[in-house]
């Protein structure tokens, strides 16, 4: 076994341990947890339709509450397009 494979196996084991622990610590689906009460979730569910006017709550969050995040995603796409065009321009005649 080469050193490269050994390092990969160790890295995989560490990641697997973290994945198993985080899966065990996961919030149970659909249960109301008094200790970790998601206040922001309930606020968005209650007020999205009146504040943003959108029936789709996900779009209301993405384009209104977290519009700055969407601006970052658009910037990432723009950067990807610019990079691809710069990278492949030299191959064309």
């Amino acid at each position: 076994m080469s050193g490269r494979n050994f390092a990969a196996i160790i890295f995989f084991a560490i990641v697997a341990v973290f994945l198993v622990f985080s899966a065990l610590m996961m919030h149970p689906f659909g249960e109301f947890d008094e200790e970790h009460y998601p206040e922001m979730d309930q606020y968005i569910i209650d007020n999205t339709q009146n504040e943003t006017g959108a029936d789709n709550g996900v779009t209301g969050v993405v384009f209104d509450y977290r519009g700055f995040d969407t601006l970052g995603e658009a910037t990432v796409l723009f950067t990807a397009v610019a990079g691809v065009i710069i990278l492949f321009r030299r191959l064309k005649k």
């Binding site: 779009t59 209104d64 796409l77 723009f78 990807a80 691809v84 065009i85 492949f88 064309k92």
Partner: peptide, 29 residues
Amino acid sequence: AGIIPLMNFAVGLKVIAGLFVIVLVMAYS
């Protein structure tokens, strides 16, 4: 929904042109 549909149109135009220009440039080059 106010400006949300207009922003959807802008982002949609951006994603259409962006993804298609990526595929087009890579295929043509």
